[in-house]
Simulated assay, not measured.
Amino acid sequence: MLKIFVILIVGICGTQGQVPVLDDCPDFDVVENFDLNRYLGKWYEQYRYANFFELMGKCVTAEYSLNANGSVNVHNAQVNILTGKPKTIDGYAVPAGEITEAKFIVNFPVGGFSPNAPYWVLDTDYETYSVVWSCEKLPLISTRFLWLLSREQNASDETVKKMYAVLDKYNIDRSFMVSTEQENCS
């Protein structure tokens, strides 16, 4: 029965796109002395682990700004590859601990459902790249998300190398990554 449960959970997570792993979430270091004000603004997604909420999406961006209550407004946008129609979603992020620690809890209220998700900035130089990790522990597995973001719509090879170096530092598997198309974005 346990084996069937594990197969079912892995199957469900796999079809939704996030990466399921039969292990706990790794405890990675995040950016020290994180400067939220420097992080705010627009980021262009370059690579990600496949996930259900970005299915058929291209031209994916995330824009962060401060809300009056001190939380961070999160505005995500993408264009549907098939229809060319834009799709956006707005949520918010709050620090998961100290404000200088690059760990946040992100929430996107949708249809009465308002799940919280971790958003950890593993590394950023604030001006060219950001590597973002998310992992949640479920019964018997963890589900993992990864985003490689750039301030440029199409990151330079040098910027991509910096992001890959972060993945290598933490031994994060690149085989689950997909490239985000950033062409013909209106």
Rank of each mutant, 00 (worst) to 15 (best):
E45Y: 01
G57N: 07
Y64V: 15
D24E: 14
L55Y: 15
T143I: 14
W133A: 05
D123S: 11
L36P: 04
V110E: 01
E136A: 10
K87C: 01
K42P: 07
E127A: 12
A102I: 01
P109D: 02
E152D: 15
A155L: 09
L149W: 00
V131R: 07
Q153H: 11
A102H: 07
Y47Q: 13
Y129D: 05
Y47L: 13
A77Y: 07
I81R: 15
T100E: 09
E63I: 01
Y44I: 03
N69T: 07
E101H: 13
K161R: 15
Y47N: 08
Y49I: 14
W147D: 04
G57L: 06
V132S: 09
N76P: 04
C59F: 04
V106R: 00
T124N: 03
K103H: 10
A117K: 07
G91R: 00
N80G: 12
D35L: 11
F53K: 12
A102W: 05
S134L: 02
E101I: 11
S142R: 14
N107V: 08
P109K: 11
N67W: 02
K42C: 05
I105S: 05
S134I: 02
N73E: 04
V132W: 06
V94R: 14
V72F: 00
I81T: 08
P118S: 10
G111E: 01
Y64L: 05
P20C: 08
Y64I: 11
T100L: 13
T83R: 07
I81K: 13
V30R: 04
T61R: 01
W133T: 13
A93W: 00
A117T: 06
A102R: 05
L36M: 11
K87R: 15
S65F: 09
A155C: 10
R38Q: 11
N76R: 00
V74Q: 00
L146H: 02
T88Q: 00
R38C: 11
N80Y: 00
S142K: 09
E32H: 13
T143L: 06
S114R: 03
P115D: 03
S71M: 04
Y64N: 01
R151I: 08
E54R: 04
P118H: 09
L82V: 14
I141R: 01
D23V: 09
E158V: 10
F53W: 15
L55K: 15
T159Q: 06
L138C: 01
F52A: 15
G70I: 10
Y119R: 13
E63P: 04
R151F: 12
V79Q: 09
L66V: 07
N80W: 00
P115W: 01
I141W: 09
Y126M: 04
